[in-house]
Simulated scan of single mutants.
Amino acid sequence: MHAARAESAEDTVPGLSAGPVALAWLTQFLVGTDLFVVAPLLPRIAASFGVSTAASGLLVTAFSIAYVVASPFAGWLSDRRDRATVLVVALVLFSAANAGTALAPGFGLLLVARVVAGVAAAGTGPTVYALVSTRARPGARAQVLAVVGSGLLTALWVGAPAGSLLGRYVGWRSAFVILAAGTFLLALPHAFVWRARPVPAAAAAPDAPRGAGRPGTGAAVSAVAVTALWAFSVYSLYTFLAVALHADGRATAVTWLLVVYGIGAVVGGQVGGRFADRSDAVRVTRSALALTAVLEAVVALVFPVTWALACALGLFALAAYAFFPAQQRHLVDLFPERATAMLSWNNSALFVGLSLAGAVGGQIVHALDYPALLYAGAAVAVPACLVARGRPRRSRERP
């Protein structure tokens, strides 16, 4: 009876059309491009303001810290206010921050602009994910999240290189002018698209299994800790890949290997989303983490052989990025009443893991070598697989 009722409810949920999904994808692409484009532009920015490249790295750090700190508050606010309004305000603020980045007369004001951009980005990504996940049909929630999330992944290997080329030929400031204009133009359609239809009840609050207990703070912390461990494992490999290839005399292979990685990541996200909707989301996250650990060790083993490295990188990215949409679906299903807050904490955990990968990974590579870092990343994915778990259950089911 319950299954039949759930199936009937899902059939009546209208879901999302291609327009809102495309709009959400484009938003993630532009925000992701802003996030990833700063690193390749740092030498030009440093030269413009007469600061060292190391000092210019504070721009990335300032953005990341602002994002991690502001994201939980932005999620809390979004769950208590109209999500569309929060998203529009965040996009306008993000546009203003990018305009400030482009027009900054000094390095101090540039640093302030990047802090504001980090705060604004904290209000865009999780809110977009929450809007699409709560309006998607329950049986397609993870697939929609994967499609929207692929905008961020596409920015990694398309948007950032394009911005870097733009900075080389017409100046780094022009890249941020374009990003400012793009995000400002997106704010208007977002203001109307998400008000066109109320959130379907069946999509916003999926039924919990009979006997399921309400997850508390411990379950929330455990859930997002898995993301931090996953991020450390994945980005320890990615962050130092180009550096290791340059040191090994294979600089010419960097670009196409990153393209292989990026394509694998996009495909992995789609596969993970599809399986999470057709199976148990936690089972998908645990399988992805287990494969991530194994394949990261394989990448370490075949690193000296370029063609084998390309194959291993593609498979690694496919397995690793299958985790993220499944994890997002798991969080929305587990905490439907505070979906944006949980997705915000999840994104903060991602940045924490990414930052630790950069800090700790650099020390490991310096003291040992790049393959040693990959073995460490693989080892971190193992406890993440063990910590990942589903909905807690009551010890006794009420009659």
Rank of each mutant, 00 (worst) to 15 (best):
E7H: 10
E10K: 09
P14R: 12
P20Q: 08
V21F: 01
L23E: 10
W25K: 07
T27Q: 05
V31C: 10
D34T: 15
L35Q: 12
F36E: 03
S48H: 10
S52Q: 10
S56P: 01
S56N: 05
S56M: 08
S56C: 09
V60M: 15
A62K: 00
S64I: 13
A70R: 04
A74H: 06
A74Q: 05
W76P: 04
D79A: 06
R83C: 03
V89T: 14
V89A: 15
T101P: 07
T101N: 14
T101C: 12
L110A: 04
A117K: 03
A117M: 07
G118A: 09
A122Y: 05
G123T: 12
L131W: 05
R135T: 11
R137F: 11
P138H: 04
Q143L: 13
A146V: 03
G149M: 04
G149Y: 01
G159H: 06
G163T: 02
S174E: 13
A187Q: 09
P189Q: 14
R197H: 11
A201Q: 07
A205Q: 05
D207G: 10
R210L: 09
G211I: 08
P215G: 08
G216Y: 14
G216I: 11
A219T: 14
A223I: 00
V224I: 14
L229V: 02
F232D: 03
Y238Q: 14
A242M: 01
V243Q: 15
V243D: 13
A244M: 03
T252K: 13
V260H: 03
G262F: 02
I263W: 10
A265D: 01
R274S: 11
R278Y: 12
R278M: 12
S279E: 13
A281E: 14
L289G: 01
L301Q: 01
V305P: 00
A310H: 02
A310R: 03
C311S: 11
L313F: 01
A317I: 02
L318Y: 05
A320R: 02
F335L: 07
R338F: 10
T340S: 15
M342E: 00
A349T: 05
G353L: 02
S355M: 11
V360M: 13
H366M: 02
L373T: 05
L374K: 00
Y375V: 15
G377Q: 03
A378R: 03
C385E: 09
L386V: 14
S395D: 12
R396L: 13
R398I: 04
